[in-house]
């Protein structure tokens, strides 16, 4: 049995039907999802560019992440909630789509990159907080940009195909 068939009851549930059939719920939640994802991606890009030494080089890495991360995480939670609502409308259809899985694989890779950065690279941030960053920090910044761009490309492909 395909995994997607497990989600047919959700798609057929009252909430799934409501989101799918209402003329305004899906576009409205989708718009809120766009706001959330642009804040997630935009704030992460600012940190990544600082790690790469491309922008915000006059600011401490620690100060920049402290300012930005609350925005990133709040927006991420908001994107997850709005994304879940959108998912209910076509749950089984999404689960049958390769790009939908690819999106979360890239998101997991972005998360793994962040965990490695936080627990290893960032531990000696004091020595590169001001001025040029280390090679490991640059790699983390570059991988973050690549993985999040891949998330957005796959996500847009999902929206286009559904």
């Amino acid at each position: 049995m395909a995994l997607s068939t497990l989600f047919e009851p959700l798609q057929a549930s009252p909430i799934g039907r409501l989101v799918a059939e209402s003329t305004w719920i899906f576009p409205t939640v989708e718009t809120l999802h766009v706001f959330a994802l642009t804040i997630v991606a935009g704030s992460i890009l600012v940190v990544d560019l600082r790690l790469l030494g491309v922008a915000s080089t006059n600011q401490r890495v620690s100060a920049l992440t402290k300012d930005l991360l609350p925005w990133t995480w709040t927006a991420f939670v908001f994107a997850a909630i709005t994304g879940t609502v959108l998912f209910t409308a076509r749950a089984a259809d999404y689960m049958a789509l390769g790009y939908f899985y690819a999106k979360y694989i890239f998101m997991a890779l972005a998360g793994l990159n962040m965990v490695i950065f936080h627990f290893m690279t960032y531990r000696n941030v004091d020595s590169w907080d001001v001025g040029p960053t280390t090679g490991a920090a640059k790699i983390a910044g570059l991988l973050s940009i690549v993985f999040w761009a891949a998330v957005i490309i796959c996500a847009r492909k999902v929206g286009f195909l559904i």
Binding site: V34, L37, T38, I39, V40, A41, G42, S43, L45, V46, A149, I152, I153, R156, K157, F160
Partner: peptide, 14 residues
């Protein structure tokens, strides 16, 4: 569209 939305992220967050 994906490039467009990435540019929206950079512009809007800035």
């Amino acid at each position: 569209q994906a490039v467009h939305i990435m540019a929206v992220a950079a512009v809007f967050f800035s």
